[in-house]
């Protein structure tokens, strides 16, 4: 693991669903809620669209942490996409744990379009969490 300096900022990839969490990110910006600049947001149509490939690829490309986020259970724009996300998350979590990647690096959360403040909280909390565990051991050489 690389040396962790005070300036080190983690790189976090966040997948947000189009209908809720992406709106949440928007609200966070509009409401000017403070949040660290560590997150790169990728919009997907639904949290159910999340493929394990995306998350594994994010880690291999050098992400220190990955969040994926969608509408609250029961609110899915496509009826049950977030249930599907839950099943996938369960598998991924078990896989990432067995692989030996720290448990803290992967997170699933539900954020609605109106929850700007919550979005900022989730991002802040997750960033702190990742700062504690340090840079990902899967980060390729040459990636900052």
């Amino acid at each position: 693991m690389a040396e962790v300096t005070e300036e080190w900022q983690p790189k976090i990839v966040m997948f947000c669903c189009n209908w809720c969490s992406y709106g949440g990110a928007d609200s966070a910006g509009m409401g000017r809620f403070q949040q660290p600049p560590t997150v790169r947001v990728i919009r997907v149509m639904c949290s159910g669209r999340m493929d394990p490939v995306f998350i594994l690829n994010a880690f291999l490309e050098g992400a220190d942490g990955v969040i994926f986020s969608g509408c609250h259970i029961g609110d899915c724009h496509y009826v049950n996409g977030n249930y599907k996300a839950t099943v996938k998350y369960k598998f991924l979590k078990a896989m990432v744990n067995e692989l030996g990647l720290e448990d803290e690096r992967l997170k699933l959360d539900w954020i609605s379009a109106s929850e700007g403040e919550r979005y900022a909280e989730v991002v802040t909390e997750f960033t702190e969490q990742i700062k504690k565990v340090g840079p990902s051991p899967l980060k390729p050489e040459g990636v900052i």
Binding site: P52, V53, L92, A94, P140, E141
Partner: peptide
Amino acid sequence: FSSASDTYKMSLFHLVRFVHLM
């Protein structure tokens, strides 16, 4: 999604298969 030219520390091919075959 994986190629021999990947510079990853682990093979994405295998990681995907780990999940896929669980």
